[in-house]
Every structure is written in structure tokens, then in C-alpha cells.
Amino acid sequence: MGWKAEEYGDSHEGIVGAVLADGSEPKPVYLDVGSGSSGHRTSEWWAYDGRMRRPKAAAYRAACSCGWRGPSHLIDWDQAKDDRLDDLDTSRPYSEASP
């Protein structure tokens, strides 16, 4: 789930994006959402967990559609045992997302 800065119009919409170990951002991934030929495309951090040949994110950060990026925050994958990604606190980028 992302955010939108209403006072700035459509130019400031963002997500909590993934950061790879080398500091780069991975390409968007397509998720199979069931039957049909189309899938869901995302660049949100949670999609980069290393499964299904996707890269594993080392960190997450605020990523705005205007190109602005917030500081990176390391992901503690040990904290997300048993696929419980909702146990990870990723709230910091939302408070930092005021370009």
C-alpha cells in the first residue's frame, strides 16, 4: 500500500520500495493473481523475498513517482519467520515521504 500527497497532485505518489544489496532498485515483478493472461506488477519491497527467482531485498525505502528516494532501512529477514512479513515494521518510509 502506498501513499499520495494530495496537495501536490499526481506527481507525488509512492510506495515502500525494495533496495538490493548493491544499493540498486530491482526491476518490477509480475505476480500471478490467478487465471487469465495478465498479472499484477509491483515494485513494493515485500515482493522481493527471494522466492520464485525474484531477487531478495536487503533494505526498503520510500520511493516517490517524481524520482525522490528516502533513506534505506535494512530488512531483518529473521524477524519475518514463517512468511510473516506483516511482523516487520516498515512504517518509517511513510513518515519520511514528504518531498
Rank of each mutant, 00 (worst) to 15 (best):
W3I: 11
W3D: 07
A5S: 10
A5W: 12
E6K: 15
E6W: 15
E7G: 02
G9D: 14
D10G: 14
D10W: 11
D10T: 09
S11R: 14
S11K: 13
H12M: 09
H12D: 10
H12N: 11
H12P: 03
E13S: 12
G14Y: 02
I15L: 12
I15T: 06
G17P: 11
G17W: 07
A18H: 06
A18G: 08
A18I: 05
A18W: 03
V19F: 08
V19L: 06
L20E: 02
A21M: 07
G23R: 13
E25I: 02
E25M: 05
P26W: 07
P26F: 04
L31W: 13
D32Y: 11
G34A: 01
S35N: 12
S35I: 12
S37D: 13
S37E: 14
S38Q: 11
G39E: 07
R41H: 05
T42L: 01
T42F: 00
T42G: 01
S43F: 05
E44L: 04
W45P: 00
W46K: 10
W46H: 09
A47R: 01
Y48V: 00
Y48T: 00
Y48Q: 01
Y48I: 00
D49A: 03
G50E: 08
R51E: 12
R51F: 06
M52H: 06
R53D: 13
R53C: 03
R53H: 09
R54F: 00
R54P: 01
P55L: 03
P55S: 04
K56H: 01
A57W: 00
A58Y: 02
A58T: 03
Y60F: 15
R61S: 12
R61M: 14
A63S: 14
A63G: 09
A63R: 14
C64G: 08
S65N: 11
C66G: 06
C66S: 08
P71M: 14
S72P: 08
S72F: 06
H73S: 13
H73F: 14
L74R: 13
I75K: 09
I75Q: 04
I75T: 05
D76E: 09
D76C: 09
D76L: 10
W77V: 05
Q79L: 09
A80I: 01
K81A: 14
K81M: 06
D83I: 05
R84H: 10
